[in-house]
Structure formats: structure tokens, C-alpha cells
Amino acid sequence: MSTTLLLIQTLNGLQFGVMLFLMAAGLTLVFGIMNLVNLAHGSLYMMGAYFAAAATAWTGNPLLGILFAIPATLLLGVVVEFITLRTLYQRDHLDQVLCTFGLILFFNELARVLWGSAAIPMAIPEALTGFVTIIPGLIYPKWRLAIILVGLLVALLLYLLISHTRLGMLIRAGASNRPMVGALGVNISLLFTLVFGLGAALAGLAGAMVAPLLSVEPGMGDPILILTFVVIVIGGIGSIRGAFIASLLVGLIDTVGRSFLPALLRELFQTQSANTIGAALASMLIYILMAAVLFFRPRGLFPPKGR
């Protein structure tokens, strides 16, 4: 087990974690502030990837494609919020789960109707193809580095937005005491639409950024959705800081576990089935982590105060 491999896997875990954060930030905000369980968050991510791929095919420039995807997903999010979700804020979580589950079915099938069942192509922006040598013997794809940087930048911007702006103050207030914010005369419905749009745009950004690395196909949002929920639950719902830390934790544990656990079990047991069991165990790791975190801290690592 070389140090280089460990370093690369750490970078990979970081990149995966940062991508999860882009998803988790929006979801945890929507959840924390609007008290809305949005299963369709993964669909917004998928649509972001599709928008990027389609716009790239149209303009021939992946960078333009990605830049187009962000406002497009934002707009889509606002429309979805306006048409279907607005009536659901006062309902219990169950209605929201069912309704947004319906949205998943709808969007997956819509993507199939619009773009076909097969995956569609999306290239890496010209300037960011290839790889860089970080230290001798350690090369890393430029695009993955770019994802890490963009993710960290977004985290920084979100931090500034939330702790240093008036909107951020309202968001924080909304996360800890919603009725009070409304009572103070804030236009809650506008705030909600803004927050939902922001979450959608972040999901769209995540989808667009990974589109060059992943298969852009109907249903691509489903696996990532579950992971995102795992992240925000571990982090504590409504907490951006929690989402950030949990994202990196899940990203690292998943990646490192996947790469070293089967090998470790093979060393220990020397049997053929060690490989299979190791792989299965690696898949379970993050769920075990989540169950453990919730066992000791039933409201996640960083539950917002005052609720």
C-alpha cells in the first residue's frame, strides 16, 4: 500500500465529497428552512447534467454548456416550486415524500422522452482535459481538480452569504425559527422560492460538473439522491457546516473503504469470498456510519439550534 495511492484516494474522496456537498447544501437548506423533504433534488441534478450536455451539443463548447445549465436548473427549480411544492409546505413530510417521488418518476421519464434512453455524450472543457503532476509520481486529472476547487469555492461563497448578508441572516433565522421570521414581516414565500432556486442551481451545477465524468442518462440522479440524504442526515438537517463536514466524511470513507477494505479482508481471511464480502461491506460502510451517528446523536452531528 503505497503512500501515493493513499494520497490519490484521499484526493478522490475529497472530490467525491465536494460533489456531494454541492448536492447536500441545497437539500439541507430547503429542508431546514422550508421543512420540505425534496426527493426530486436528484432529478434537478440529472436535469442539470442534461442541460449541460444538450447546450454543449448545441454550442460545441462544454464550458458554455455548464454555464447555461446553472440558470436553466435554477429556473426549472423555481417553476417546480411554484407549480407543485408551494402547496406542500404546511403538509407533513409524508405528503412531500409522495409528491416528490412522483416528480422523480416524471422527470426520469421526461428525460427519456426528450433525449432517449441511451446515455448522451458530454466532453470535458478543452482547457481542462488531461492531467497535472502534483508531486512526482502523482498525476491527477485536471477536471477532477477543477471540481474540487469549484466545490470549495461554492462552500466559501455559501459561508459568506449565510453569515455576512441579510439574506443569509434570514436563512439562518428561518432554519431555527420559521414562524418568527414570518411574523417579523419577511416575505416568506419569496424567501422560499429564492432558497429553492438556490438549491436547484447548486444541484444543477453539481450535475453539470460531473456530466463529463458520468453517464448522462435517465435515472442518474437516483443513486446520488440517497447519498445526499445520508450526508445531510449525518450532518444535521439545516446545517451547512454539518453538510460540508459530512460530505467530506462520506466521500472519504466511501472512497477509501472501497479501495482498501477488500484488500484488507483478503489479507485477513485468504479466501475467495473475502473479495465479495469486502465489496459488500464497502458498500454498506456509509450506511453503517449513518446508523452509528444517529444512534449516538439522533439529530445528526450539527443540529441547528433553537428547534
Binding site: T84, T87, L88, R91, D95, L98, C99, F101, G102, L103, I104, L105, F106, F107, N108, E109, L110, R112, V113
Partner: peptide, 19 residues
Amino acid sequence: RHWQLFLGPILILVVIFAR
């Protein structure tokens, strides 16, 4: 064959209107 395209909205309508 696109049955989910219709099942999805039906679910949404049920949630919104048939509480």
C-alpha cells in the same frame, strides 16, 4: 411504454387534491 410519465403526475395530484 412511458407509464411513469403519467403515474408521477397522478401521484402528485392525489397528494395535492385528495388529501
